[in-house]
Amino acid sequence: MSNSFNRRQWLQAGTALAAPVLLPAAFAAPLSRLVLAGPPAIVSAPLIHMAQGNALAGVAAKTEFVPWRDPDQLRSMAIGKKADILAMPSNVAANLYNRGAGVRLLNISTWGALWIVTRDGARKALADFKGEEIAVPYRGDMPDLMLQLLCARQGINARRDMQLRYVPSPMEAMQLLITRRVRHALLVEPGVSMALRKTRSFPVSVVAPELHRGADLQQEWGRLFQRPPRIPQAGIAAVGAVRDQPEVLSAVQQAYAASVAWCRANPLECGRLVAQYVELLTPEAVADAMPHSQLGAVDAQAARADIDFFFQQLLAQDPALLGGKLPDAGFTGG
């Protein structure tokens, strides 16, 4: 699939790309290249917009986006310094940091985009899926660990009390669901919206949809832990040499926040950008996903209380998820 981009075509289509972040005149010569990387999820949409709009021209002569397909590839890219800014689950960032991989979390930008999508509209809570087969992506990683955590909190052993069918990626879980090989799948936006679109289960005016939004894991989190239904699920992190370049990090954070705002204000145009990188997604599905994704960049230090509460639950479940301990202040640049 080509990642080429015709700026003039997008401008003619009405897509206003992010303006480059301007830096003080004293800043040194820009980097020759800045590589942004992310998964086929909403967290990557602002990174794609930044790369396509050359929003970091003030710090890098060239900015490009590359996708990662699964957490193993993500870890390889981070450890091998194959990207400078990576969108990643918050626990993966902490695990890498605690293992000395040289990672600094910049923000939390996805506050929950996980749902069990089902053919049975009567199933609305996790407990309703006991005994059922569920397609689950990324075994041992987000979103599997969220399913395990929320089930355990209410006395359900997910691996014993449910039939978990693990698959390599959310897109594969979605494919199993829409081809009727499973009745339920744990999906992350925009895969949820894509599944609903593929089966003509959206918009809500559909009289008899094939698929339904079942258990909302964000609502389960809020109910079970008596907190707002917001999970510090994923954000962007700096790796390698850029961690020690505050002007670059500041430019990245400003541009990412601006691109988040643009994506939320222009969901269909954002969808057109994202669809260039994820073949199974359509612009309309990405646009549908925006209201359900809780996309909003919060500086990692400002989000630290939410992050630490989430991490404490993961530590109690399995310390290895975080590399054995809560990350210290250096994890968020404190």
Rank of each mutant, 00 (worst) to 15 (best):
R123L: 12
L23I: 13
D120T: 09
M174L: 15
L114G: 03
V117C: 10
N54W: 01
D120W: 06
G334R: 14
L314Y: 11
S4T: 14
D328V: 05
A320V: 03
D244R: 14
R304P: 00
L149A: 09
M142N: 14
R104V: 01
L164K: 11
L47G: 10
P168R: 12
I79E: 08
N157K: 15
A125I: 00
F129E: 04
P291Q: 10
G121I: 03
A28G: 06
P168V: 14
A125L: 10
L106D: 04
E269H: 15
A195K: 13
V278K: 06
L281G: 07
Q163L: 13
D144M: 05
A135F: 09
L150G: 06
A101Y: 04
P203Q: 08
Q276D: 03
T332M: 00
R197M: 14
N107M: 03
A37C: 14
Q317W: 06
E210P: 00
R165K: 15
F309R: 07
R181G: 03
Q233G: 02
E247N: 13
G131D: 08
T282F: 13
R104A: 01
A241N: 04
A135L: 10
A237T: 07
Q218L: 02
W115A: 04
P228I: 03
A83T: 01
A234C: 11
E269F: 07
Q254R: 14
L176N: 09
S293N: 11
S193Y: 10
K124L: 11
V252N: 02
V260Q: 04
K62G: 00
P170E: 12
R119W: 05
A57H: 06
I178G: 09
